[in-house]
C-alpha cells in the first residue's frame, strides 16, 4: 500500500488529535508503518486543532504533507482551515451536525455524517460522536482491518474504561455504526 495520507481538523476538545493517533496506533499494530502528528495552537478550547496521519507499507520520510487522501472536518471552521489539503479524488467526511455549508466541497464526494445525532440517539452518549467519525474514516482507509481497533481503543481508553465500564461497549458500538456508514 502506498502512503495513505489523512488530515483531520476539529474544534479543541472534539478529539481530532486522539482520532489521528488511534488510527496510527492501530495501523502500527497491524504491522503497517504509521506516523501521526498533531498541529495545534495555544487555544485548548476555542481554537481549531489539526492532525496528520500517514499509513504505509514503506518507511514514511516526513511527518507532514500537502495533500490528503482522506479529509475530515469536524466543524465549520475546520473546513476553511484544511481546505488546502483537498486534491482531486480526496475522500471527504464532514461532521454534518456542525458543518452545514458545503460550498467549498463542490466537486468532492462528501460523506456527510451527523455523528452527534447518531451518537446521541443510537449509542445514547453524544460524546462518542468522534468514535462514529473514526469508524467512518476507517471504512475509507484501504488495507486497515477494523479488528485492530478493538485492542487499540482498549489501550487508549483503559483509565476511562475503568471509571466508566459502559463506555467500552458504547465506543465500540459507535465505531461500528460509523464504519458501516462508509465501508462498501
Amino acid at each position: 500500500m502506498a502512503n495513505f495520507k489523512i488530515v483531520i481538523c476539529g474544534e479543541g476538545g472534539q478529539g481530532a488529535l486522539s482520532v489521528a493517533e488511534i488510527i496510527a496506533q492501530a495501523a502500527h499494530t497491524q504491522g503497517k508503518r504509521a506516523l501521526a502528528m498533531p498541529f495545534f495552537s495555544t487555544e485548548k478550547r476555542g481554537g481549531v486543532s489539526m492532525a496528520f496521519t500517514q499509513i504505509s507499507d514503506e518507511p514514511i520520510p516526513y511527518p507532514k504533507f500537502g495533500k490528503a487522501d482522506l479529509w475530515v472536518a469536524l466543524s465549520q471552521r475546520s473546513v476553511d482551515r484544511i481546505a488546502a489539503w483537498l486534491q482531486p479524488g480526496t475522500k471527504v467526511i464532514v461532521n454534518s451536525f456542525l458543518v452545514k455549508d458545503l460550498s467549498l466541497l463542490k466537486g468532492w464526494e462528501v460523506s456527510e455524517i451527523d455523528a452527534v445525532t447518531v451518537a446521541g440517539e443510537e449509542v445514547r452518549n453524544p460524546r462518542t460522536f468522534n468514535m462514529v467519525i473514526m469508524g467512518a474514516m476507517v471504512g475509507l482507509i484501504p488495507g486497515l482491518d477494523r479488528s485492530a481497533f478493538t485492542e487499540t481503543l482498549e489501550r487508549h481508553f483503559s483509565s476511562k474504561y475503568e471509571k466508566n465500564p459502559e463506555l467500552k461497549a458504547q465506543n465500540e458500538k459507535a465505531f461500528g455504526i460509523g464504519y458501516g456508514l462508509t465501508h462498501k
Binding site: 496510527a24 496506533q25 504509521a34 506516523l35 501521526a36 502528528m37 498533531p38 514514511i60 511527518p63 507532514k64
Partner: peptide
C-alpha cells in the same frame, strides 16, 4: 516541535 510531537515507530 514536529519531531517532539510526532507519534511513530
Amino acid at each position: 516541535g514536529m519531531l517532539a510531537k510526532t507519534l511513530g515507530e
